[in-house]
Design a protein around this nucleic acid. Sequence first.
DNA 1: GATTTTATGTCAGTCATGTTGACATATTTA
DNA 2: TAAATATGTCAACATGACTGACATAAAATC
Lengths: 169, 169
Amino acid sequence: MTDIKSIPAPQAASLLFLREEELREGIESFFFAYRDFVSEADALLAESGMGRAHHRALYFIGRKPGITVGELLGVLRITKQSLSRVLKELVAMGLVVQTQGPEDRRQRLLRLTQSGAALEARLFTMQRARIAKAFRDAGPDAVAGFRKVLGGLRDRGDPPKRQNAGARS
Amino acid sequence: MTDIKSIPAPQAASLLFLREEELREGIESFFFAYRDFVSEADALLAESGMGRAHHRALYFIGRKPGITVGELLGVLRITKQSLSRVLKELVAMGLVVQTQGPEDRRQRLLRLTQSGAALEARLFTMQRARIAKAFRDAGPDAVAGFRKVLGGLRDRGDPPKRQNAGARS
DNA sequence: GATTTTATGTCAGTCATGTTGACATATTTA
DNA sequence: TAAATATGTCAACATGACTGACATAAAATC
């Protein structure tokens, strides 16, 4: 039923139009929502002369204390030069500490300091308010759908290895 | 039921933990999905020496042919100086044309040329493949939930007017 | 034990995209 | 006529990415 081939041309065109329209609206919603969501923490970060790159590093170090530099590079998918600058600043500001890996002493394990954790918590609290409200208003089924679609939008397969990023010449 | 105040402390803490965990996973999904989604068109844009800013302008001009510069600024929420640079390049490359507004001759109405529309279509086709697959795999209910949550994440109220952007000193 | 690979850091330069501030011009509105 | 609006433009700067090249220490392999 509703076999697209069985539909007369004008209606099929109309269906295709709606399909494209629906997808474009999805793309636009995605763009606007993401922009509004991430821009929220900027003011707080700017107070300490930081930007979004600092936020992302703080976030993922807080999420996995003891994460190595290489792992963090893999998560963020940026070059080590980019990350290095950010990490250096976070360490200089006393928000992050690096310790030598206990098994592999080449590794630098990253952890938030107390003040780093405090800043991350303040940033998370801001974003939590927004996302919690969106989740609450939309309801659990909608949240499940949100997660499901986001999962489908992710890259599948190998993350494209980038020069200078991780274990690559 | 499930009044949080009636739950003994350890379980309440556990629930709160799950709640935070759930929200963090949502934030991360959002970050990863958005990054993967928008990065896809970069290679094609780079061939012509363009970036994401060009893509966004092309996209919204294609979406509303005859859009004014001021309207586009309102959609993108960037400064006119940023947009100006991008528009100038798009016009120079023959992808966009500007025509004087028929009623208000101060306005510059923006439209895609044939090759501009062709490029936009190529870019949209790339993204359509990804989002259509995600929508199809997730199902209509999930898509509805996705849209619902995204709507809730948007800024409410006045878009924060930014200096130099639109009608402001 | 010597060699290679890996994890990390660093210097130097470039690019894309955003910002602020100031000012110019044409056109519409009051 | 005067003020407000839509647009454009010059200049300077910040952020966060990038490439390429090279350095060091430690682990893994031959």
